[in-house]
Structures are given as C-alpha cells and as structure tokens.
C-alpha cells in the first residue's frame, strides 16, 4: 500500500520506501523516526502516543479542526471568563438540563476549577459538571471587563 508521508519541516511528500529507514539503516526497527529524503529532517512517523498516565487523566477533546479562538471548557484556566458558543453533542435532554441553569449559547461563564471535578459559574450559580461535559461545551474567551471606577 503506497502511503505518502509529508515532512512537517519542508512539506515534501514522499513514500516510506524511498527513505533510508527502509534500506539498511543500522538502527533498524528500534528507531521510531523517519528522515525526509529532501531536507534530511528527522521526525516521529506517528504522533507520539499518550503515556498511560495521560490516557488515564487527560482524555482528548472530541473535536478536531476548531478555529483557534474556539476552545472547550476543559481548556479554560481557573478564573478565566468565557462566552458559551455551543453545548456540544449529548442531545436535547442534556442541553435542556444545562439550559435550566442558564447555560445556553451566549451565556457568560467563569471557570472556577478543574479538579477534582470541573466547576463553572453561570451568573450567581456555581455548577459542578462531569469532566465529559466540560470537554464538549465550546466557548470563546472574553476579555476581562475593567471594573467601573468607584
């Protein structure tokens, strides 16, 4: 199966069998890197797999290819304010149980903490959520509003 690899450095596309790795590299199977035949840049062929620790404690967000300013609640830092854009998957039932607490697209929230469970503040309500929900709710950061002069 002809599989094209793309060098992340120069963008050169090449076949794996065109690399040195396939032709008598002394490191052989022990080596996890490929070398671009164009610019000789070495890089790991597959994205580094997560360590078991990361697999247990950090589950990746279900989204790919989000615009840069759109993040999940999980990526907010404690104390940051954000505006809700989308409640994510989970169906109308979950959406509705979030909506009755005022958590709807357009609402402004603040992240209180991530661990041991994510807690966000919507208006004057502090709401504890499942980590699974925090990974799905999409928000954009809001610049902190300067307090009005006293």
């Amino acid at each position: 199966m002809a599989e094209y690899l793309t060098c992340p450095f120069c963008g050169f596309e090449f076949l794996r069998e065109d690399t040195l790795c396939e032709h008598g590299c002394p490191l052989g199977a022990m080596c996890g890197l490929v070398r671009c035949p164009n610019c000789q840049y070495e890089y790991p062929e597959k994205p580094q797999s997560l360590t078991w620790l990361q697999r247990v404690f950090r589950r990746p967000s279900p989204y790919t290819d989000l615009p840069a300013h759109v993040i999940t609640v999980q990526e907010l830092k404690p104390g940051e304010r954000a505006r809700v854009l989308c409640l994510g998957t989970g169906g109308p039932q979950r959406h509705n149980s979030l909506a009755v607490f005022g958590l709807v697209p357009g609402a402004e929230i603040a992240l209180v903490q991530h661990h041991p469970s994510p807690v966000i503040q919507v208006e004057e309500t502090e709401l504890a959520l499942d980590p699974a929900i925090a990974r799905e709710v999409l928000v954009e950061r809001v610049e902190p509003v300067a307090p009005p002069p006293q």
Partner: peptide, 9 residues
C-alpha cells in the same frame, strides 16, 4: 446520568 449539580453558597 450526567453529573450537573448546583453548588449552594
């Protein structure tokens, strides 16, 4: 069910 719990002050 989902864990969505209001935290009273």
């Amino acid at each position: 069910s989902d864990f969505i719990l209001e935290i009273p002050p």
